[in-house]
Design a protein around this nucleic acid. Sequence first.
DNA 1: AATGAATGAGTTTTCATTCAT
DNA 2: CATGAATGAAAACTCATTCAT
Lengths: 205, 205, 205, 205
Amino acid sequence: MSDTLSPEKRDQILQGASRVFAADGYEGASMARIAQEAGVSKGTLYNYFDGKAALFSTYVAEVCQRNLAHVFDRADHDGDPAAVLREIGRRMLTMVLSDAGLTMYRMVIAEAAKFPILARAFFEAGPARAIDFLSRWLEEETRRGRLAVDDPSFAAEQFFNLCQTHLVLRRKLEMLADPSEAEIERVVDAAVRVFLRSYGVKAFT
Amino acid sequence: MSDTLSPEKRDQILQGASRVFAADGYEGASMARIAQEAGVSKGTLYNYFDGKAALFSTYVAEVCQRNLAHVFDRADHDGDPAAVLREIGRRMLTMVLSDAGLTMYRMVIAEAAKFPILARAFFEAGPARAIDFLSRWLEEETRRGRLAVDDPSFAAEQFFNLCQTHLVLRRKLEMLADPSEAEIERVVDAAVRVFLRSYGVKAFT
Amino acid sequence: MSDTLSPEKRDQILQGASRVFAADGYEGASMARIAQEAGVSKGTLYNYFDGKAALFSTYVAEVCQRNLAHVFDRADHDGDPAAVLREIGRRMLTMVLSDAGLTMYRMVIAEAAKFPILARAFFEAGPARAIDFLSRWLEEETRRGRLAVDDPSFAAEQFFNLCQTHLVLRRKLEMLADPSEAEIERVVDAAVRVFLRSYGVKAFT
Amino acid sequence: MSDTLSPEKRDQILQGASRVFAADGYEGASMARIAQEAGVSKGTLYNYFDGKAALFSTYVAEVCQRNLAHVFDRADHDGDPAAVLREIGRRMLTMVLSDAGLTMYRMVIAEAAKFPILARAFFEAGPARAIDFLSRWLEEETRRGRLAVDDPSFAAEQFFNLCQTHLVLRRKLEMLADPSEAEIERVVDAAVRVFLRSYGVKAFT
DNA sequence: AATGAATGAGTTTTCATTCAT
DNA sequence: CATGAATGAAAACTCATTCAT
């Protein structure tokens, strides 16, 4: 059945869906508009996907894979721990505050009750990946005696939460435009300071 | 004109709207279903409210007033600062994780682009109130020499973010049922520890 | 039953209905708006009239009686026949072109299929009265040898139709604002000229 | 986009719309009833037309084109002027008194305030065409010395107004069924007589 | 007799989905 | 396999009418 479906057309449809879902949300998006945006007929949509819900699920999964992966990929254990933490916090915060990140978050939150599987997929592809990365880095730094973290996974989550202070909720509530680099750095610096007071080792702070 | 509309029926409608909005979100809710759930006719809905958007706005405002007010009202400067912080964190977290809090958050986030005024109203009625309360308490404690907080408002936000570690995002993504008291306390205790390492005064820690 | 209904309130309602029907037409008018405009409750409307249709019928009848009567009341057999005709044509045309006349015509025409009785009532109260008046005047003038009209009623209708040349249809189709006195007189003068070429007597032309 | 919509179905819809609009007027017609009458679904209506207003506009335009065009197309300058005028008057009056003409007139008048563009389109397609045709004929006859018309356009309008005596208003007000040929001829003959008394040339009368 | 809250059938319009071509 | 016309079940909202107070 799916032997004759071309992957190019599948991508083409997902590109269109991407634009429309991002602009209008799940409920607001119409299959007609997605078809138009993708340059295919409405019927073709149903040849490649089982319906609107399935198309949305695939879209969220793909965007998560594409955008959220490879952001936390290289572990640096040579430089100053504080500098590394600042870089990690800055990357995470920048993505969370970006239009793409914001839109995706909103949609997933809005439809979490309806699409719990999708919500989990989002978590695994994004936050879980970041936590896992930072967690492993903290563990290794602790092993090397440069940090003193007892529960690395929990501490990683604490750090990311600290980084979201002030800016993130306000941005989600449309009370803030995309913040400047300087604003982001100010918040991240404060987060790193608080974090290291608890988990730092004297010699390195 | 609307003076003579019975407040009981108004409440009855808001009760129904409450159930339907909570279950289906703003877009997903239908006026027909709200009418049915409230036990009134569709026409009556429009006698009491100007339309779906107005009904939603009123519902959000009322729930904010009802649920979020009077949670942070008494400032305690006698006991142990750590104990006070634990109590504050526990209250905030309990509310954020409750069904009502969760539902409200989801809807406001989902519709923030469409109803920015409402999003701000939510912020003022909820998070802003909490931040303001804690901020003042931190200031007073600092004045009394029991804490050392330079930027009380920012520190307050950091504390609330720390308290949301682990549980809140997972709950928003339907990956967690309503957590137990013990789980909440474990997270809050950790938050208080980290917070006081940065902002505490030796004699009191 | 109608013993206790006050004529003042009835008039009050008709005043309100008058404004709303004139502004919005029959279909466009809402009973709620009429009640508001009349300063009574919706219920009261139904105490005085059997429903929207009945209210509309009464309104049309009353307006016809009030506005169209007493326009052609005095018969002048002393002056120049041409001058008298000009005056009659001018009066008729002015009324037909007025906002009130136009509105009434539009409504009656629009609803003639639905309210044929009302259409007839309009005809009797307006056009028929005018035709009757002119017809009798033509008859008397013919008796006095100042005109030569064989079928006075038909000739009267011909005269009124001639007077409506150019202006009336365009006004009905919203292609013309309320015309000036000069424009009206130019058309009426032409009508009188054509009319007297057929029905005039040499000595008086 | 709309290239592939079948013209047959479009016609089918317009046929249905035609029946419903004619019976109920613009406001009175419902899209549901039009769909039913046309034998299509409500959705299909919106595939072919942008909405009720657009459907109505198209309907009026098509009927005007279909019914009013090609009625006054051949100019005859050989026969008796009186005979030619009688033929022109008869044709015009027959159309104005027909069910199609009557219905169209009623609707256009009723909605002229809401659709002034449509009212003008009706005027151009119908009355204007007739006036133009007769006007040119009168001019040519005058040039040939068979008539003496100074203002051909105005005289043409006078003639058409004279032809509408007695029958037209009564028919519009539902006080008359479709009149017989004999009645029409009686009125037209009288109109021609009056017209030629003013604009005729002795030798030809 | 007056009120106006309540009703519910009605309105236009949208849209996910199907299926003949 | 791709198409897009057709569908029909919703949606939000209106309004003439009724009836308890």
